[in-house]
């Protein structure tokens, strides 16, 4: 009886996701289209001079995360539904450990989100004149926020994969989990924009890591049941 390691299985699932996405570009197109459209619309309507100076850190932080949040939601929610729709889930269930599937798909969503952030955030800062005083702080918030969003989106996507009307269900289930996260990452981004001190982002960062951590532990405990049943 052969058995692969959990790491090797997770990387195999990740490799499959990347290869599939590079050929089909379903998530890339959905995320890219939404992100670029909203970014251009916001930049065109508000631009670097459309906000009062005292409102800029908060409003620009909120707008940035609204763009990232909805763009990510458009792409990440399909990571499990596409397996059910294409009838490939059965083969994957038989060949891979549940946690390898979770980790592989989570890593894929994380890569997708980090790539989205790497493109959108510098563009947004340039188009909106968003001056960030602590670039290191912003990077920390982006990475931690991206990871927490990826964990939450992947887990909710797994829960809704076999339900009919899964898109609507994703929004309903994800909202209470993602809303506090959104509030925390906006606070962290605002702190990075307003203060050159790296420590300024730590309170928000703690909240992001805590929320992401709790969701991750819940996912590790519940996903095998959700995936097998």
């Amino acid at each position: 009886m052969h058995r692969s390691t959990l790491l090797a299985e997770s990387l195999a699932v990740l490799g499959k996701e990347v290869a599939s996405e590079l050929r089909r570009r379903v998530a890339l197109n959905a995320i890219g289209l939404f992100a670029v459209t909203t970014l251009v619309a916001v930049a065109y309507q508000i631009g670097p001079y459309g906000l009062a100076e005292q409102d800029r850190p908060f409003l620009l932080s909120a707008l940035l995360w609204i763009i990232l949040f909805f763009a990510a939601t458009a792409g990440l929610s399909r990571v499990f539904v596409k397996e059910e729709d294409a009838h490939t889930a059965k083969a994957l269930r038989l060949a891979a450990r549940p946690l390898a599937v979770l980790y592989g798909k989570l890593l894929f969503n994380l890569l997708l989100l980090l790539a989205l952030e790497a493109i959108i955030v510098p563009l947004y800062c340039a188009l909106m004149g968003f001056a960030v005083k602590s670039v290191g702080g912003l990077v920390l918030v982006m990475v931690a926020g991206g990871a927490a969003f990826a964990v939450t989106s992947t887990f909710v996507a797994a829960i809704i994969a076999r339900a009919s009307g899964s898109n609507a269900l994703f929004a309903i289930l994800a909202l209470p989990l993602l809303l506090p996260l959104l509030v925390a990452v906006i606070a962290g981004t605002r702190a990075a924009a307003g203060s050159p001190e790296l420590l300024a982002v730590f309170p928000a960062l703690r909240a992001v890591v805590s929320l992401g951590g709790v969701t991750m532990v819940t996912a590790i405990l519940l996903f095998p049941v959700v995936w097998r049943d």
Binding site: K16, A19, S20, R23, R24, A86, H87, T88, K90, A91
Partner: peptide, 8 residues
Amino acid sequence: DMALYEEL
């Protein structure tokens, strides 16, 4: 009712 990956 079991499919493989069509894009691979």
